[in-house]
């Protein structure tokens, strides 16, 4: 596919944060093609279910391969692609419901394996496609169709969760700056190991958080999102844990582990170290011959 399908009839709502994310993905992939000198067909995008998953159908320009699979399973599908073809550039795109709720069980194993894929998570704090139900990142007390008394569950702090699972590369981003986001996605794709770019990508229809994130001095609303200071050492896990415990949402490169050996390299290294021999089927049959 050289360009997006003009007949594809799914549309994001006006002002949706995902528009900026798809733009950033296009820019980062163009840059990846440029700098790696590899065809875009060597990238596979694995999408979850929800508004954000439609990103694989809505990219303009040269198209990577895509999988638009079942709800919550982006990471194990990406594990299969990467196990089969470690040479491919594998990118996961999913929302907070897909990635943190139904798919939450897959994050820790992916982090522990150090699966070398890049996840772009579009967090809008709501199930948008099914019309506005509470998601794991919906605020406590917020009223939605499924939380008529206000949300009674505490919200998940995704950045704290990623850090505690041992995700070695974590960026906290915001969809209002697609060029910065493109650069952050590019760094994540270059990182040798499991990387997550967690993007605040507001839903203008069901959970418009632009004002809460950016603030509004006229209404006396302070910005909820704040820049991680330049003095932060991304290699320092304790410092990152301190940042995500502060009020609001820190934005920027939160964590970048200095040591990272990805899954497929661990396997190659172990086989070499242990001098693993491969027996042919004939040799294996010899062992049980009578």
């Amino acid at each position: 596919m050289t360009k997006r399908n003009p007949d594809y009839d799914f549309k994001w709502c006006p002002g949706c944060g995902d528009f900026a994310v798809v733009r950033a993905v296009e820019l980062s992939l163009a840059e990846w093609v440029n700098t790696s000198n590899r065809p875009i067909e060597e990238t596979v995008m694995v999408a979850g279910i929800g508004c954000s998953g439609n990103l694989v159908h809505l990219q303009e320009g040269p198209q990577p391969f895509g999988i638009h699979g079942i709800h919550g399973r982006t990471l194990p599908i990406a594990l299969g692609v990467k196990s089969a073809r470690p040479d491919l550039n594998v990118v996961v795109v999913a929302g907070d419901g897909d990635f943190l709720s139904i798919g939450g069980e897959h994050i820790a194993p992916a982090a522990k394996r150090n699966l070398d894929v890049t996840c772009i998570i579009m967090d809008n704090g709501v199930y948008g496609l099914t019309k506005g139900q509470a998601s794991p990142t919906t605020e406590f007390g917020q009223i939605t169709p499924t939380t008529p008394y206000g949300k009674l569950d505490d919200p998940v702090n995704p950045l704290l969760l990623y850090l505690s699972y041992g995700v070695p590369f974590i960026v906290s981003a915001i969809s209002t700056r697609p060029r910065v986001l493109a650069q952050q996605i590019g760094e994540a794709m270059d990182y040798p190991g499991f990387s997550i770019v967690h993007v605040q990508s507001p839903c203008t229809t069901y959970n418009d958080t632009y004002e809460a994130l950016k603030g509004n001095p006229a209404k006396g609303i302070d910005p909820g999102a704040w820049e991680i200071p330049d003095s932060h050492d991304p290699g320092n896990l304790s410092a990152a844990l301190d940042l995500v415990r502060e009020a609001g949402i820190p934005i920027g490169l939160l964590h970048r582990a200095n040591e990272s050996v990805p899954m497929h390299e661990r396997l190659v290294e172990a086989k070499e170290r242990l001098r693993v021999k491969t027996r042919s089927v004939d040799q294996l049959l010899d062992m049980v011959a009578v």
Partner: peptide, 20 residues
């Protein structure tokens, strides 16, 4: 790959099958 559940198992072989 030792998967963390059968949901992972099926999803992972689908990813590998897709990759050829």
């Amino acid at each position: 790959v030792q998967a963390s559940s059968e949901i992972e198992s099926i999803s992972t072989i689908i990813g590998a099958g897709y990759a050829g």
